[in-house]
C-alpha cells in the first residue's frame, strides 16, 4: 500500500514539467527515504535524478519498496488537471497495475481522482559516486536560463569556464560568437540573487546547449541553481525542490577528438 499526500501539489506539477522533455518513460521508486526517480534521456547523454524526501510529505505511507513505471507525458496530462493550490495524493495498492492521483481543492469543496495505468519499464539504475568538484557555481536560476536561451541562438554548444575572475559561458556559431561572464556577487538585497563561486581549481568544459536548455525547464521550482563542474565528471545542474529534495541533471561533456 502506497499513500503520499503532498499539500503543496504544485511542486509535483513543476517537477513533471521539468523532466518530461528529457525523459519519456521512467520508474518512480518509493521507499522509506522518499519518492525518487533516476532516468537517462534516450541518447544516454544526460541523466536526471529526483528525490522528494518522505519528511516533506504531510502523509507518507510506503509499506514496501515499490517501483512504478510511468509515461511522463501521461503523468503530466494527469497533473495538469490539478489546480495549482490543490493538495495531491498518490495512491497505489500492492500488486496493482494502476496509480491514482487524488486532487483536493484547498477548501475541500472539490475532490477528483484520476487513475493511470502503470507500465513495465526496463531501466538501469546507475551508481552516482560522491565526488569533489573543481568548481561549484550558485546563481539565480532565471539568469542561468536566460544565458542558455541567449547562447543557443548563436551556437549549439556552451563552454563553461570557471576561473578566479568568475564563470564564463561561451559559444560560437556561423554568425559569430558570444561570451557572458558572471562574477561573484554577494552584495545583493536577497540571498537568492547572489552569484557565489567556489573554486578549488580552474575548470573548462563543453556541453550541448540543447540539454542545458531542457534542464532550465526546472527554473520554476527554485530561485537558484547550482552548477557543479569537474574535469573528470558530468556537470551537475541542481534545482532544490522546496525544502523536501532536489532535481539533479547530469550532463556528459563534449570532448576534443
Amino acid at each position: 500500500m502506497l499513500e503520499l499526500r503532498l499539500v503543496q501539489g504544485s511542486l509535483l506539477k513543476k517537477v513533471l514539467e521539468a523532466i518530461k522533455e528529457l525523459v519519456t518513460d521512467a520508474n518512480f521508486d518509493c521507499s522509506a527515504t522518499g519518492f525518487s526517480l533516476q532516468a537517462m534521456d534516450s541518447s544516454h547523454v544526460a541523466l536526471v535524478a529526483l528525490l522528494l524526501r518522505s519528511e516533506g510529505f504531510e502523509h507518507y505511507r510506503c509499506d514496501r519498496n515499490l517501483s512504478m513505471g510511468m509515461n511522463l507525458n501521461n503523468v503530466s496530462k494527469m497533473l495538469r488537471c490539478a489546480g495549482n493550490d490543490d493538495i495531491i495524493t498518490l495512491k497505489a495498492d500492492d500488486g496493482s497495475d494502476t496509480v491514482t492521483f487524488m486532487f483536493e481543492s484547498p477548501n475541500q469543496d472539490k475532490i477528483a481522482d484520476f487513475e493511470m495505468k502503470l507500465m513495465d519499464i526496463d531501466s538501469e539504475h546507475l551508481g552516482i559516486p560522491e565526488a569533489e568538484y573543481h568548481a561549484i557555481v550558485k546563481m539565480p536560476s532565471a539568469e542561468f536560463a536566460r544565458i542558455c536561451k541567449d547562447l543557443s541562438s548563436i551556437g549549439d554548444t556552451v563552454v563553461i569556464s570557471v576561473t578566479k575572475e568568475g564563470v564564463k559561458f561561451s559559444t560560437r556559431g556561423d554568425i559569430g560568437n558570444a561570451n557572458i561572464v558572471c562574477r561573484q556577487n554577494t552584495t545583493v538585497d536577497k540571498p537568492e540573487e547572489a552569484t557565489i563561486i567556489e573554486m578549488q581549481e580552474p575548470v573548462s568544459l563543453t556541453f550541448a546547449l540543447r540539454y542545458m536548455n531542457s534542464f532550465t525547464k526546472a527554473t520554476p521550482l527554485s530561485n537558484t541553481v547550482t552548477i557543479s563542474l569537474s574535469s573528470e565528471l558530468p556537470v551537475v545542474v541542481e534545482y532544490k525542490v522546496a525544502d523536501m529534495g532536489y532535481i539533479r541533471f547530469y550532463l556528459a561533456p563534449k570532448i576534443e577528438d
Binding site: L47, E124, H125, G127, P234, A252, K254, I255, D257
Partner: peptide
Amino acid sequence: PCIQKKILDYFCRD
C-alpha cells in the same frame, strides 16, 4: 570536432 561523451562513460550500473 568534438565527441559527445555518454553518462555510462562515467557512471556504472548498480
